[in-house]
Structures are given as structure tokens and as C-alpha cells.
Amino acid sequence: MIIVTTETVPGKETKEYKGFVRGSTVQSKNIGKDIMAGLKTIVGGELKEYTEMMEEARQKAIGRMVEDAKAKGANAIVAMRLESSAVMQNASEIIAYGTAVTVED
């Protein structure tokens, strides 16, 4: 699956638009990692526990978006975007979305 943030895939011709596709996940941290991250805020530095959690969430959301595109018969996704939002304390939603298309050389 080709995924680009541009409106077209460079070097490819868009043959058919399949429509909007998306994938999302809501991730939260476990209490142990949350305590460690809380302590890190006192001394400063990267909160690796949160960085890892958000990377995992992005990968899940993108994977679900790709499955949506495959189900529609697409071989590429154009104009892909990622967004995040807090849905409750210590939990974030990541959504990946774009337009499913079929492309050829």
C-alpha cells in the first residue's frame, strides 16, 4: 500500500477514487508507566513511556486505515493525515485518515 501526504502519488496515474478511509485507536497508559512519567516531569527530559505509547497508537491507526482502503479495493492512500486528541485524563485518540485510490504507472 502506497501512503502519501500529497494529493497524488508522484510518478503514478490515479485511475479511480475509492473514497474516504480512516483508522483510529484510543490508548491509555498503565498506572506503573504513568507514575514513572510523572516523576520524569520533576527532573525534565523526554517522557519515553508516552513517546512509545503514541508511536504504537499511530501504527495501529495507520494499520486500520490501510485495512479500510484494502477493503475498498485501493492500492494507495493520498492526502493522509494524523490527528490526536485527549478523550479523558491519560487517554488519547489517534486517527489516521485519507482518500483511498487506485494508481498505475
Rank of each mutant, 00 (worst) to 15 (best):
N30G: 08
G44N: 05
M88T: 15
L39M: 13
A74R: 00
K60G: 00
K70T: 05
G73Q: 09
I95W: 01
L39E: 08
R81V: 14
A71K: 15
T51D: 10
E46R: 07
N90H: 15
I77P: 00
V78D: 00
E56G: 13
A74G: 04
T51G: 05
M88E: 15
I94G: 00
I31L: 08
K33M: 10
E67Y: 09
A71C: 03
I35E: 08
A76K: 02
I42W: 01
L82S: 03
A91S: 13
A86I: 14
S28N: 08
A91T: 07
A86Q: 14
V26D: 00
A79E: 10
N30K: 12
M53A: 15
E49M: 04
I95P: 00
M80Q: 03
T41F: 04
M54K: 11
R58M: 09
G45Y: 05
V66W: 03
S85G: 11
V87G: 02
E93S: 07
A91P: 01
M53H: 03
E49H: 10
E55S: 12
G45H: 09
M53T: 11
M88H: 14
I31Y: 12
V87L: 01
Q59S: 13
K60W: 06
Q27K: 14
A69Q: 09
A71Q: 11
G44D: 07
S92Y: 15
G38L: 06
V43G: 01
S92V: 15
S84D: 13
A76C: 08
M80H: 05
A79W: 02
G73E: 04
R58L: 04
A61I: 03
G32Q: 07
A91L: 08
G38M: 10
K29R: 12
S84F: 06
K29C: 08
M53L: 15
K72W: 08
